[in-house]
C-alpha cells in the first residue's frame, strides 16, 4: 500500500476539502493551476497592483473596487450553480440584472418598494423555471436556451421602457442602501460576502447542492439513483436567477438609476470569475467560495486597467483572453484526470 501524504489544508468548504484530500500525485502544472492556481495568482495580482499601479492602494479605490465587484459577484455566485450542474452558463443574467434593476426603481417609484421586490422575485422565479424546464426537462442546450431568454427578456424590457433611464427619489430607501456603510465597508460589499457564504452553504451542506454537484458529475448515474433531475436543473437556474435579481438590486441602488443597458457584459464577466476561480465548465467540480476569489481577481484586473488608462475595448479583450486561458487550463486538468 502506498503512503498517502495529505496536502496542507487550505480552509475551504467540504467540496474543496475533498479535492485536497486526494492522495498526493506527481506534480502536474495544469491540474495545480486549475485547482490551486487562483490563490497564488490573485495574491500576485494584488501585490503587483499595490507596488506598481498608482492609486490602487488607497481606501477610496479599494472601496470602489468592492462596490463594483459586489453586483457582479452576487450574480456569479448564483450562476456557479448552473456551471457546476454541467450546463455551462446562464447568459440570461444580462436580461435578468437589468430587469431587476429597472423593476426595483421604476415599480417602487409608482407602487412602493415592497411591490417592486415582489414583482422582481416573481420575475426571477419565472426565469429560473423557464430556463430550468427547457434545459433540465426538455434537455435543450443551455447556451442556446439562455441566449434566447436573454433576447426575450431584454427585448421585452426595451419595448416596455423604450430605453428610458429611471431615477429613484433622492431620499428613498434604495439610495440609502446604495450609499450605506458598515463601518468602513460599503453595505453592498457586506451583502456580497453574506450571499456568497449563504450560497456556499447551500451548495455544500444541503441535499439540493449535493444533487447539483452529483448531476454535474454524471447525469445518468444521478437519475438512476432516484433523483428528480428536472427539479435539480430548475433549482440551479433559480439560484442563478435569484443571484441575478440581487445583483440587479445592488447595481441599481449603487447609482440610484436603472436602464435596460445597465448590465452589458455581466454574462461573460460572471463566467470569467467562475472559471478563473477554478470551477470546472465540465460540471461536478467547484465552489461558490472559489467564485468569490475569481470575482476579486477579475475586479482587481479591471481596476488596474482602468487606473492605467486602458479603455473598455482593452478590458473586453482581457476578459475574453482570460476565459480562453481558464477554460483551456480546465480542459487540460481534466485530461490529466481522465488518463
Amino acid at each position: 500500500m502506498t503512503e498517502h501524504t495529505h496536502k496542507p489544508a487550505i480552509h475551504l468548504p467540504p467540496v474543496a476539502e475533498i479535492e485536497q484530500e486526494v492522495e498526493e500525485k506527481a506534480f502536474k502544472f495544469s491540474e495545480w493551476m486549475a485547482h490551486q492556481g487562483i490563490f497564488v495568482v490573485t495574491a500576485l495580482l494584488v501585490i503587483f497592483a499595490m507596488l506598481f499601479v498608482d492609486g490602487f492602494a488607497s481606501l477610496p479605490n479599494i472601496t470602489d473596487v468592492f462596490n463594483r465587484a459586489a453586483p457582479i459577484g452576487i450574480v456569479a455566485a448564483g450562476m456557479t450553480f448552473v456551471v457546476i450542474s454541467g450546463n455551462y452558463l446562464d447568459l440570461s443574467v444580462v436580461a435578468q440584472v437589468a430587469t431587476a434593476g429597472v423593476v426595483l426603481i421604476a415599480v417602487s417609484n409608482v407602487f412602493g418598494l415592497p411591490v417592486a421586490i415582489l414583482v422582481a422575485v416573481a420575475i426571477a422565479l419565472l426565469y429560473g423555471l423557464v430556463n430550468g424546464i427547457a434545459v433540465g426537462v426538455f434537455k435543450a442546450n443551455a447556451v442556446i436556451v439562455t441566449l434566447s431568454t436573454t433576447f426575450i427578456g431584454l427585448g421585452l424590457l426595451r419595448w416596455l421602457t423604450g430605453g428610458s433611464i429611471y431615477f429613484g427619489p433622492n431620499d428613498g430607501l434604495i439610495r440609502a442602501f446604495g450609499t450605506a456603510r458598515l463601518g468602513p465597508l460599503p453595505l453592498a460589499m457586506v451583502l456580497f460576502v453574506v450571499v456568497t457564504l449563504l450560497l456556499s452553504l447551500v451548495l455544500t451542506r444541503t441535499t439540493f447542492g449535493f444533487m447539483v454537484r452529483s448531476y454535474g458529475s454524471n447525469r445518468e448515474a444521478t437519475r438512476l439513483a432516484g433523483v428528480n433531475t428536472g427539479k435539480v436543473v430548475i433549482g440551479a437556474f433559480t439560484m442563478s436567477a435569484l443571484g441575478a435579481m440581487l445583483g440587479g438590486f445592488v447595481l441599481a441602488a449603487f447609482s440610484n438609476t436603472a436602464v435596460s443597458a445597465m448590465s452589458t457584459g455581466y454574462d461573460f464577466r460572471s463566467l470569467a470569475a467562475i472559471i478563473v476561480g477554478g470551477t470546472s465548465v465540465f460540471g461536478g467540480r467547484g465552489s461558490v467560495l472559489r467564485t468569490l476569489l475569481g470575482v476579486v481577481f477579475v475586479s482587481v484586473l479591471t481596476n488596474i486597467m482602468v487606473l492605467s488608462g486602458l479603455g473598455f475595448g482593452v478590458q473586453q479583450m482581457a476578459i475574453g483572453l482570460l476565459i480562453v486561458l481558464a477554460v483551456s487550463v480546465d480542459a487540460l486538468a481534466r485530461k490529466g484526470i481522465a488518463s
Partner: peptide, 12 residues
C-alpha cells in the same frame, strides 16, 4: 456511465 459519478468521492 450509469452507475457512478467518477469524478466524485466514494462518500459522495
Amino acid at each position: 456511465t450509469d452507475g457512478l459519478a467518477l469524478t466524485m468521492a466514494v462518500v459522495d
